Simulated assay, not measured.
Amino acid sequence: MKQILGWIAGTALLALAACHAPDNASSKQAAGSMELKVYSVPPAQTGQLTGALRSALGGKASVTSPTPGKLLVYAAPDAQASIGKAIASLGPVSSTPSAATQVDLHLWVIDGESGAGADDAALKPLASALDGVRQNIAPLHFSLDQMITARTSAGDDGTSVVSAVDGGYSRGVDFMVRGIDGEMLDLELSYDDHGQRGLAKFKSEVHLRAGQYVVLAQGPGACAPALLGKSAPPCPTRPALRLLIVRADILPPQA
């Protein structure tokens, strides 16, 4: 699938270069014309195809997806011809809409304390990821601040979770699975900690394998902030490090 995406992007770029080359008056006239076309594509690959075409076409065309399985492309006719041929190479798209692949997403907010010590028992499944952090930084032991879970579908508008944190403030997390290729996922995630301390805001796109624990971000540790009119929660020792770790699990098709 990755090779096909690269070929689609390449053919779009070649077509764009051809239709905008200033060879003569007729080519300039063709370059100025634009047309809108709708393409049917595999629903699970909609996000990947949209991203590949946007990267290739840049500001010379517009690529949008109103729904999984459909692409709207506004581009020059020569580019449309090449894009159409490339998309056709993906094979026939079933006329019967298939259910979008569902994905369970898990995000761990973890604090690292300086020195040797036992990790929280709840973090045992993440041991290999945490050991990697220890090897790269210093002796640390880890405690779980919060775990956030969500279920979403590949190619949809994403899922948002707002959760309460001890101390009364909230965290917001937005997940979007842009596409799935076998066991690999293209995930977009944004994190907003309304405590506004330590690792407060983060946004990333990551290509990861299903079932893999991935350290998305690490930043300075932070004590919980004081709320308006209240004192801050006890925090005798500020954590040395804060981590964001994510895992995505592809769910089997529903019967």
Rank of each mutant, 00 (worst) to 15 (best):
R134P: 06
S65V: 00
G172A: 13
L57I: 08
T101K: 12
P139G: 06
L57Y: 13
A116I: 07
V133I: 13
G58T: 12
I148M: 03
L57P: 02
Q48L: 13
T64G: 10
L130G: 02
L71D: 02
I110V: 15
L53N: 02
G69C: 05
A121Q: 15
R134S: 10
P68M: 09
S170H: 09
V133Q: 09
D120L: 09
P139W: 01
I83Y: 03
T159S: 08
Y169A: 01
S153V: 02
Y74G: 10
L140T: 01
Q146N: 12
H106L: 12
P92V: 06
R54D: 06
S160N: 14
A129Y: 04
S163N: 10
W108S: 07
S163L: 06
L140M: 08
A138W: 05
N136P: 03
A76R: 09
R151Q: 14
V165M: 13
D145R: 07
D166G: 13
G51N: 04
A164Y: 05
L90W: 11
L126C: 02
H141E: 11
S95T: 13
A61H: 03
D174E: 03
L123E: 00
S98Y: 04
P68E: 01
S143D: 09
S143T: 15
F175T: 01
Q80N: 13
N136H: 10
A86Y: 00
S170T: 14
P92I: 09
A86M: 04
T67F: 06
K85S: 11
L126Y: 05
P68T: 00
V63H: 03
L105C: 13
V41K: 00
G172L: 10
T50W: 01
N136W: 00
G172Y: 04
A116Q: 14
A86S: 15
G58R: 11
S40W: 12
K124P: 08
L126S: 03
P68R: 08
T67Y: 04
V63W: 05
S40D: 14
V165A: 00
P139T: 10
V161R: 14
S160I: 12
V41S: 09
V93D: 08
A122G: 07
G167Q: 01
Y74W: 15
V162R: 04
P42K: 01
D157P: 01
K70G: 00
P139N: 13
P42M: 02
S170M: 06
S89K: 14
G58D: 08
P66M: 07
S40I: 06
S40H: 12
S89Q: 13
